[in-house]
C-alpha cells in the first residue's frame, strides 16, 4: 500500500491530454514589493507590510524574526492565501500612474507554480502544498477522535480517497509526529496531554504531505523538554516529509541552531535575510531593534571586549569548536 497517496498524482494539465511540459518544478517562494494595509481608509489604518521583497528557496529551513506587530504573521498568512493580494480579489482596479511619474509597482507573490496575484489561482490546491501550523495549534482540534481530526484536512483536499488510503496517510502522519497511532487513534484529542495535543494538531496539518510547512511559534508555551522535542520533530519533518520549513520564532538560540537563513521584520519592513552566521554579526543592529541575540553571540561580544575574537557560526557546537580551536592554535 502506498502510504503517501497524495504523492505523484498527475498534474491537471497532463490529465487533460496536453503534452506534459518537462520542467523541474521547485516550490520557491518569491515575494516582490508585498504591501498590506489593515483597515485601509479608516482612522485605524495600519500598514502591516511595507514593500517586502523576499525569496525563500526550496529545501530551506527558514526563520522569520520580529516583534509582535512587525508584519511577520501578515507575511506568513500570504503564503497560503489566507490573506490575498489586492490584485487577486474581486473588483480590483489597477492603480493608475500619476502624470509624470512611473506606474506604481504592483506587489507580486509566487509560490512554486502558483501566482498569488492572480484571481484565477486555485487557492485550495495551493493550501494543500503549503501547510500552516498556527500558534497554539491545539486550539484547532475539534473532532471526536484523533483519527477524525487528523483525517479532516486530507478529506477536505482529496474528495475520493479510499478508506485504506486515508488510514495509511493518517497513520504515517501520526507516527512521524511521535504519537503511538494504535494508542491514540480512537481517543478524543481533548484527553491527550498538552504536548501530545500539539503533536496531534501538527499531524492534522502535515497529513497531506505539504511541500512547504509554515509554523508560527511551534514551541510557544511548552516546557524546555517539550521545546526540544518539537525542534527535533521539525528536523525529522524537514528530512523525511516536507521540502521546505518556514518557522516564525522569538527564540534566537533556536534560530541560530536550526535555520539555513533568517529574515528580520520590523514595522512592516524587511530588515534583512541572512544565514545565522552572518545575521548575528549584526548583533548591535538587532539589539537596537529591541530583538534578542543568541547566547553564543552574547559570549562572542563579551570575549571581543576582552580582546579575544572567536569567529563562529553561532551554534553552541560551533562556538565550542571555535574556542577549543583557538586554544589549540595557541599551543
Amino acid at each position: 500500500m502506498n502510504p503517501f497517496p497524495l504523492r505523484g498524482l498527475p498534474l491537471k494539465g497532463a490529465a487533460r491530454g496536453r503534452p506534459p511540459i518537462i520542467t523541474i518544478k521547485t516550490m520557491q517562494i518569491t515575494a516582490e514589493h508585498l504591501t498590506y494595509v489593515y483597515n485601509p481608509g479608516s482612522p485605524f489604518a495600519v500598514k502591516a507590510l511595507d514593500d517586502v521583497s523576499l525569496t525563500i528557496e526550496e529545501g530551506e529551513f527558514f526563520g522569520i524574526i520580529g516583534h509582535t506587530g512587525s508584519g511577520k504573521s501578515t507575511f506568513v498568512k500570504h503564503l497560503n492565501g489566507l490573506i490575498r493580494l489586492p490584485s487577486s480579489q474581486k473588483h480590483y482596479k489597477k492603480p493608475k500612474a500619476k502624470k509624470g511619474q512611473p506606474a506604481p509597482v504592483e506587489p507580486s507573490l509566487k509560490v512554486g507554480e502558483f501566482d498569488l496575484a492572480d484571481r484565477k489561482t486555485d487557492f485550495r490546491a495551493l493550501r494543500k502544498k503549503v501547510g500552516m501550523v498556527f500558534q497554539y495549534p491545539e486550539a484547532q482540534l475539534f473532532a471526536e477522535t484523533v483519527f477524525d481530526d487528523v483525517a479532516f484536512g486530507l478529506k477536505n483536499f482529496e474528495k475520493d480517497l479510499k478508506a485504506e488510503e486515508i488510514e495509511a496517510a493518517v497513520k504515517a502522519a501520526t507516527e512521524i509526529v511521535g504519537l503511538d497511532y494504535a494508542a491514540v487513534k480512537d481517543v478524543s484529542p481533548f484527553d491527550l496531554s498538552g504536548g501530545q495535543r500539539r503533536r496531534a494538531a501538527i499531524a492534522g496539518v502535515i497529513v497531506t504531505k505539504p511541500e512547504i510547512l509554515v509554523l508560527d511559534e511551534p514551541a510557544a508555551g511548552l516546557d524546555p523538554l517539550g521545546k526540544k522535542e518539537i525542534m527535533e520533530l521539525l528536523h525529522r519533518l524537514h528530512r523525511d516529509w516536507c521540502r521546505t520549513i518556514v518557522i516564525v520564532s522569538h527564540d534566537m538560540d533556536e534560530i541560530a541552531e536550526n535555520c539555513t537563513r533568517a529574515a528580520v521584520f520590523s514595522e512592516g519592513k524587511l530588515v534583512c535575510a541572512l544565514p545565522p552566521k552572518e545575521l548575528f554579526l549584526k548583533s548591535e543592529e538587532l539589539l537596537s531593534l529591541g530583538l534578542d541575540i543568541p547566547l553564543t553571540a552574547k559570549l562572542c561580544a563579551a570575549l571581543a571586549k576582552r580582546g579575544v575574537s572567536v569567529g563562529c557560526d553561532f551554534t553552541v557546537d560551533g562556538f565550542v569548536r571555535a574556542v577549543l580551536g583557538a586554544k589549540g592554535e595557541k599551543r
Binding site: R127, F134, A139, Q140, F152, G153, N156, F157, V205
Partner: peptide, 11 residues
C-alpha cells in the same frame, strides 16, 4: 484564528 487554521486545512 481558528477559521484561518481550518481554512489552511482545506475547509
Amino acid at each position: 484564528r481558528i477559521r484561518d487554521a481550518q481554512k489552511a486545512r482545506g475547509a
